[in-house]
């Protein structure tokens, strides 16, 4: 009798479970163990979008596929080219270490998580037509594996892209190896390192370690009549000319420089900060040598600073096949 009762309960439970709308026998995602570069803080990953092998693979497929574009003419990777640290044209910020970012785009158009900025990209930049994906048998299978769903939604696309982007982490440049005691700077690089992290060169206030950005928006004294910058978003006159501090990781690969790509080389950038600053009402007080035109570096110091900036190049990152188009 007792056995019968237990058996009945088991059968009932099985029946109830099998009747739940969440029943997804094909949905067995594999948890992804994200490796965080040494010296980086922990990455906050939303509870409702845990990283899985299947989700990342789907995100990678979407990243390289123009199917996201309403006109199917361009993909994320059209502008975000791996060999250039996932950037290419001047007004495109690189896709590197974005799992730690919270202010998005040059003008700070969006604040929030990677999912939030992906919502912007999918729905307001690409104007993705869901029917294109829904009519693709291969994608139907990939979404099923990644999210256990037969219904492809904007949210699933955004979650998959966010998962892939959380893997694009660069933390194995010479700079990192020196921090870990695995390499040494040359004398010139070391001078550049000192200039960068002291108020002599004063780069660190806007390009803080470990990501070489402070994530904030600044008017860095480019012009006496600056482009609007964050003013376009906030409408606050105090935000005129403010743009996001870009990461300097892999800066060697991301020319041209500034929000409008006005500088073709790192040497031009350093010359600007040395003696090319221009006054305007909203220049950030961190540009404290504005009245002198800049920090007034010697030619040796300029060369040293450029040499140090090149120690932020992570060749492994820009060649990592796990981040490239999946051709299989």
């Amino acid at each position: 009798m007792r056995i019968k009762a237990v058996g009945s309960i088991f059968l009932l439970a099985s029946a109830l479970l099998s009747c739940t709308p969440d029943e997804q026998p094909d949905y067995t995602p594999t948890a992804y163990d994200l490796k965080i570069p040494k010296g980086f803080p922990a990455m906050e990953i939303p509870d409702d979008n845990p990283m899985t092998v299947e989700g990342i693979e789907l995100g990678r497929m979407l990243y390289y596929d123009s199917i996201l574009d309403q006109n199917q003419s361009r993909a994320c990777a059209t502008c975000h080219v791996q060999e250039h640290s996932f950037t290419s044209v001047p007004d495109v910020l690189p896709h590197v270490n974005l799992g730690w970012s919270y202010n998005w785009l040059w003008k700070g158009d969006v604040q929030g998580s990677l999912e939030d900025i992906m919502e912007f990209e999918v729905q307001h930049f690409f104007f993705t037509n869901l029917d294109n994906l829904k009519s693709d048998a291969a994608y139907l299978g990939l979404f099923k594996k990644a999210f256990g769903t037969d219904e492809i939604t904007y949210q699933h696309i955004e979650m998959a892209l966010a998962q892939f982007l959380r893997t694009l982490n660069s933390g194995n440049a010479k700079f990192d190896k020196v921090q870990r005691g695995e390499a040494q700077f040359t004398n010139q690089e070391n001078l550049g390192f000192e200039l960068f992290f002291t108020e002599r060169g004063d780069c660190f206030h806007c390009h803080a370690t470990a990501f070489f950005t402070d994530g904030q928006l600044h008017n860095n004294a480019l012009d006496t009549d600056p482009d609007p910058g964050h003013f376009d978003i906030s409408g606050d006159p105090l935000d005129f000319g403010k743009y996001k501090s870009p990461t300097l990781r892999n800066i060697e690969y991301t020319a041209p420089y500034m929000h409008d790509g006005r500088f073709a080389t790192l040497e031009e950038v350093v010359n600007f900060y040395s003696e090319g600053l221009q006054p305007s009402p909203t220049v950030d007080p961190l540009m404290k040598q504005l009245s002198n035109g800049g920090v007034q570096l010697s030619e040796d110091e300029k060369a040293a600073l450029v040499a140090f900036l090149k120690t932020l190049s992570d060749e492994e990152f820009v060649q990592n096949p796990e981040f490239s188009r999946n051709t299989q």
């Binding site: 803080p41 919270y102 992290f197 002291t198 660190f204 803080a208 370690t209 990501f211 950005t213 402070d214």
Partner: peptide
């Protein structure tokens, strides 16, 4: 360094150099 969270790490960092 690193004990007060990402945003304050970036906003208020005092470099290791100093």
């Amino acid at each position: 360094t690193g004990s007060l969270g990402l945003e304050l790490d970036q906003l208020m960092e005092w470099p290791m150099m100093m």
